[in-house]
């Protein structure tokens, strides 16, 4: 496939890449832009490890052609911490023991991030539904759910969203 110029916003910064638009956004991020925080667990849209936020929506980046990012906004796990200040979701994931092998964590956190953008006081079932496309083999999801609840609480107390 012919390479083409694609301009999009990545983690708040406008960038231009010259790439094959048919490769997946996941490949573009990992292989060409060096953002390996977004993981590949299956490459078939089944595990959620590659979840990123595309215009506010959590998507499996392995299923999104890179060309579809054109003129849109992509957020990856690398965008969440500001300097040495972690996002409340990241803090809560650590505090609640929601991270074991950690391979699902970036995708899981991005799905939770998208949820908290939509809903500042999610219920347990809303959380479980929001992360139901993100497989975790280590945790049984319990401490992840606790972490998202706790992060929502923290954000509410700070008067912020997401």
């Amino acid at each position: 496939m012919q390479k083409e110029q694609i301009c999009f916003t990545l983690n708040g910064e406008t960038i231009e890449v010259y790439t094959d638009p048919t490769i997946s956004l996941l490949r573009l991020l990992r292989d060409e832009l060096g953002l390996t925080g977004t993981k590949e667990g299956c490459g078939e849209g089944e595990c959620g490890a590659c979840t990123v936020i595309l215009d506010g929506m959590a998507v499996n980046s392995c299923l999104v052609p890179a060309g579809k990012a054109k003129n849109r906004s992509v957020l990856t796990i690398e965008s969440l911490a500001k300097g040495d200040k972690y996002h409340p979701l990241q803090e809560a994931f650590v505090e609640k023991g929601a991270v074991q092998c950690g391979f699902c964590s970036p995708g899981m956190i991005m799905s939770a991030y998208a949820l908290l953008q939509e809903s500042s006081e999610p219920t347990s079932i809303e959380i479980r539904t929001a992360i139901s496309g993100n497989l975790c083999r280590c945790s049984g999801y319990k401490q992840i759910e606790e972490a998202v609840l706790s992060a929502a609480e923290k954000l509410k107390n700070r008067g912020e969203s997401g």
Binding site: G37, I77, A81, Y86, V94, V99, G102, F103, P106
Partner: peptide
């Protein structure tokens, strides 16, 4: 654990 949740851990 902090490397894992920021995407910096190298797998």
């Amino acid at each position: 654990v902090w490397a894992k949740i920021t995407g910096k851990a190298i797998y």
